[in-house]
């Protein structure tokens, strides 16, 4: 990518800073640093740190792209509202459906099938050899377990 070299040439042109190639390259560099942090986060091993680095950084990255690459923050309001409204709708969808789909038990009911998923997952692990990826699985996914048949519902 020759963008690096290009950027320093164009920075002197008449565009205000926020539209200059040099500015874009700077933002890109920040994005890459953030990517690195989010990759490093899980290495620390603390679950909350991982989640914050992974998703918090995703939000920050998204904001950077939206603001500096898509220029949504300087766009006419109508476009901002349209995008914002659709995002809000997704939050509405998630939080309104969560009581039904996310939870698997209530005062008077228990989703048996969902509990059986755990066994299902572990059973399907038998088809795959032990993990040989960069990350070792958090819990011992490869250890053999009596492959109990999934709860019969048919």
């Amino acid at each position: 990518m020759s963008s690096h070299a290009e950027g320093s040439h164009d920075a002197s042109h008449h565009h205000d800073d926020s539209h200059s190639p040099a500015h874009y390259v700077k933002i890109w560099a920040v994005l890459l640093v953030l990517l690195g942090v989010s990759l490093a986060g899980p290495e620390i091993g603390i679950r909350w740190v991982t989640l914050i680095t992974a998703f918090g950084i995703a939000v920050v990255k998204a904001f950077l792209v939206i603001k500096h690459f898509m220029h949504l923050t300087v766009e006419r309001k109508v476009a901002q509202y349209a995008i914002g409204a659709c995002f809000m709708l997704m939050l509405l969808f998630f939080f309104a459906v969560a009581p039904d789909v996310m939870k698997h038990w209530g005062v008077n009911w228990h989703n048996e099938a969902a509990s059986n998923m755990k066994r299902e997952i572990e059973r399907s692990e038998h088809h795959a050899p032990a993990a040989d990826q960069a990350h070792a699985p958090a819990d011992g996914a490869g250890h053999p377990e009596a492959s109990a048949p999934a709860a019969a519902t048919h």
Binding site: F93, A96, V97, D100, V101, N111, A113, A114, N116, M117, E120, I121, A150, A151, T153
Partner: peptide, 13 residues
């Protein structure tokens, strides 16, 4: 499919 970890209510929603 609830047996596979899915949820038919999700479709309804």
């Amino acid at each position: 499919d609830p047996d596979r970890g899915g949820d038919p209510i999700l479709w309804q929603h």
